[in-house]
């Protein structure tokens, strides 16, 4: 095997750090926008607290356009926009931009689904107690949906680890980049195995954190 692990380990550690950074930042940005978009989608639904058919149709349409595009194609397709916003299309931050957009729309759907599963009776009860639409959002919708929401976000986090590997192939850095350049293109199986093992550990870790958190929130 032609790898000098002495010099290669720091490279792996750096790449792992990049992957975690990409996933973490994307998760935060994606969640913020995802929750907002998901909320808008839910409250503008027919019969809901801020019913607005026009807004609902637009958001729904946008989500349905962006979600089915394979990420690797989306990544390339919006690269002109990435250059406008980030200044470059290469590197970790250039990967975070498209990842955040894709994540936000996926999260929006997850958020909407979780809100729909809240008993409408509870929302009616809050209304009957004099809650305003805004109060309903932050005292009912979010706390009542938080448990399943955390599980949904965990699911998204794991697909983000997958996204980050893809982003690596177009210069985003991270473990995906290492696996592609050293493992795939140089036929170095041991590098491939090491990166895959790290990815598996990251996924397990994310799932464990998500499960623990949601169990705490749901009390089961």
């Amino acid at each position: 095997m032609g790898v000098d692990w002495q010099t290669f380990w720091p490279r792996i550690v750096e790449a792992t750090g990049q992957t975690i950074l990409m996933v973490a930042v994307t998760l935060v940005i994606g969640s913020i926008f995802g929750i907002i978009i998901g909320l808008l989608l839910f409250v503008t639904r027919k019969g809901n607290i801020l019913e607005n058919a026009f807004l609902y149709q637009i958001i729904n349409f946008l989500i349905n356009i962006i979600r089915p595009i394979p990420f690797i194609i989306f990544l390339v397709a919006i690269s002109p926009l990435t250059r406008e916003v980030i200044g470059t299309t290469i590197g970790t931050w250039a990967a975070i931009f498209p990842m955040s957009i894709a994540a936000a729309f996926s999260i929006a759907r997850v958020v909407e689904n979780n809100f729909i599963s809240i008993d409408p009776g509870v929302i009616e009860a809050a209304k009957a107690m004099g809650a305003s639409p805004l109060q309903i959002i932050y005292t009912i919708l979010i706390p009542e949906a938080l448990g399943p929401l955390v599980l949904g976000l965990t699911f998204i986090t794991i697909s983000l680890i997958d996204f980050s590997a893809m982003a690596g192939t177009v210069g985003g850095g991270g473990l995906g980049h290492v696996a592609m350049t050293y493992g795939y293109q140089r036929f170095d199986t041991s590098v491939m195995i090491v990166t895959v093992v790290i990815l598996i550990v990251l996924v397990q870790l994310a799932q464990w954190v998500g499960n623990t958190l949601s169990r705490k929130i749901l009390r089961r």
């Binding site: 009776g121 509870v122 009860a125 009957a128 706390p143 009542e144 938080l146 929130i217």
Partner: peptide
Amino acid sequence: IGMIFQNFNLLTS
């Protein structure tokens, strides 16, 4: 005006 419900509608959280 207080209101009570058949299915109670308590906040589970």
